[in-house]
Design a protein around this nucleic acid. Structure first.
Lengths: 154, 154
DNA sequence: TTTCGTGCAAAAGTTTTGCAGTCTA
DNA sequence: TAGACTGCAAAACTTTTGCACGAAA
C-alpha cells in the first residue's frame, strides 16, 4: 500500500526499474530525470511540478522549473508516471500504478492512496459496456482528514 | 440519470430552484447568471468556463469570459455547482449532484454520468475511518468511448 | 437608491516552447 | 561525436482582480 523508504532495497529496485524503462524507451538517463523520478517515487503526497522543483533545489540548485515540467510530461507520455485527477489548478503526479484508489482531504488537499480489493474485483454495471472499452476504474473519496476535522471542530 | 430536455417541465423546475437558491444566498438574479446556470444544467458534457462562454456568445454577445469565471466561482462557493475532477488544464463544471459517477474517454475527453446504486450502498473498507470523515465517494472509469475506439482501430 | 455584478483591461498563476550551449550514450 | 536534454527567457494559456459603469432589489 505505501511506498518504500528512501534507502530500502525496494527503493533501489524502483530506481533500477526506472532506468531500465528509460533505456527501453530511448530516453537518456540524466541526473535531473533520475532525481525527479526519485522525488516522485518517494513522496507520498502526489506533488505538483512546482513542489517537486522546490524540493529538488536543495539537491540540484540549478535545476529549472521548465525541466521539471518537461520531464514530467515526457515520463507521462511514456507511461512511467501519471497525472492525478484533482480539482486544483496545479497538476499533480504519481508513479504509475493502476490498482489503487484516492482519499482526498477537501481542506488541506492531502491525497493518499488506499487499496480496496473487493471493489477491484466487483463487476461493473452492464450498461457500461455500451459506452465503450474501460481501461481503468478508480474510487475517489472526499472528506476531511483527522487533522483537519479537529481543526474545524475546535 | 440524465439531465432534462431544455424545454421540459423538469428544466423549468431546475431553473426555478436555482433562482430560489440565489435569493436564499443573497445573490442577485442577473441575466448572465441565469444563462450560465442554464447552459451548465442543460449541457451533458461538463463544460469548461471557456466552452460555456463560447456557447453563450450566441445568446448574449457581450458577455465576458471573466464574468463566466466569476460566476462559476461564486456558484461553486455557494454549493450550487461543482468542479469536476480531471487531468485537463481547464477546469470543468457540473450542477451539484453527489450521487453519480463519471465515465471519461481518454481520447476525446468526453465525460458522462452514470449511476451505480449497488456501489453507493456498498460499505467502505474499515481502515478508511482511521483517516478521517468521508463526505463523498465517487467512481471514475477511464477508457475509450465507442466512437474513439472505432477511430483508433480503423 | 443602494448594493452588487458586469465588462474592460491588466495582472497573476501555470505550463509550454525556441534557442544555444551541455551532457549522455 | 551525434543526438538528446537542459537552462534561460519569452510566450501561451488559464484564471483572478481593480476599477468605473450598469443593473437588481
Amino acid at each position: 500500500m505505501y511506498q518504500g523508504h528512501p534507502h530500502s532495497a525496494q527503493s533501489n529496485e524502483r530506481l533500477h526499474a526506472f532506468e531500465q524503462a528509460c533505456r527501453k524507451a530511448g530516453l537518456k538517463i540524466t541526473h535531473q530525470r533520475v532525481e525527479i523520478f526519485r522525488e516522485l517515487a518517494f513522496a507520498q503526497d502526489h506533488p505538483s511540478a512546482e513542489t517537486i522543483h522546490r524540493r529538488l533545489k536543495k539537491k540540484l540548485p540549478t535545476i529549472s522549473v521548465d525541466t521539471v515540467y518537461r520531464t514530467l510530461t515526457t515520463l507521462e507520455k511514456h507511461g512511467l508516471i501519471s497525472k492525478v485527477q484533482t480539482v486544483e489548478s496545479q497538476a499533480r503526479f504519481e508513479v504509475k500504478d493502476d490498482h489503487h484508489h484516492h482519499l482526498i482531504c477537501d481542506n488541506c488537499h492531502e491525497i493518499i492512496d488506499f487499496d480496496w480489493q473487493v471493489f477491484d474485483e466487483y463487476p461493473l454495471p452492464n450498461e457500461i459496456s455500451d459506452w465503450g472499452k474501460i481501461k481503468n476504474k478508480k474510487v475517489i473519496l472526499h472528506g476531511l482528514c483527522r487533522k483537519c476535522s479537529q481543526k474545524v471542530s475546535s
